[in-house]
């Protein structure tokens, strides 16, 4: 249900009224016509090589390209970046949006430098993910427009991360942190804050 009712943020929206400077600057950066660099184009060729050299094979590159675009840009997928992916695969933008809105790992809004994803499903819940989430929220502080005021953190509650035997799990960007508790979660945020 949540998957069906996602919104795409348009850069044209009134982000300029936001009180979060980091959010504003991220939105401003997203308002550009994106282009792949030479190195990036070379990498895209290696992605294409995995799939059959025909129309159907080309469409298969959509998920890998969205991942790549998100990683290479700013950790999220503004519409103009999706347009670049659409042009690369020669498919309509709406097809790209259709797919990007289906998968939760594609961020349709700017996220902080550290995206903290907390699993709160059954195994993590039994081992105390509730306390971990509360502790993270307390330590990170106020969230405005999806991220903390210093632009460092976004906290998302996610579904099972598939590491139940090492629960509770928190994912920091791409890395898993295992067996968290209220104290370790607090320390985790403090460490990341110090790192900046």
């Amino acid at each position: 249900m949540d998957r069906i009712t996602v919104d795409i943020v348009d850069v044209a929206n009134e982000y300029k009224n936001s009180k979060n400077e980091h959010y504003k600057s991220k939105m401003e950066r997203a308002d550009q016509d994106f282009k792949w660099s030479k190195e990036q184009l070379a990498h895209i060729e290696t992605i294409k090589a995995k799939y059959p050299d025909n129309e159907k094979g080309k469409k298969s590159t959509l998920l890998p390209l969205l991942h790549y675009a998100q990683d290479e840009f700013d950790g999220w997928l503004p519409v103009k970046l999706m347009q670049l992916v659409a042009d690369t695969i020669e498919m309509p933008l709406i097809k790209v949006q259709e797919v990007a809105t289906f998968y939760t790992m594609f961020n349709l809004k700017p996220v902080g430098k550290y995206h903290l994803q907390v699993c709160t499903n059954c195994a993590c819940m039994v081992t105390g993910s509730g306390k971990v989430l509360t502790s993270l929220k307390e330590e990170v502080g106020e969230i405005e427009d999806g991220m903390s005021k210093d632009g460092l953190f976004t906290i998302t509650e996610v579904e099972c991360l598939g590491a139940c035997i090492q629960s509770p799990v928190v994912q920091v960007n791409k890395a898993y942190k295992f067996r968290q508790n209220a104290t370790s979660a607090k320390e985790l945020v403090q460490k990341l804050k110090a790192k900046g």
Binding site: P64, F102, Y103, T104, M105
Partner: peptide
């Protein structure tokens, strides 16, 4: 053998 990454959908 090629790896294809999903993107978060059970």
């Amino acid at each position: 053998i090629y790896i294809h990454m999903g993107a978060g959908a059970y």
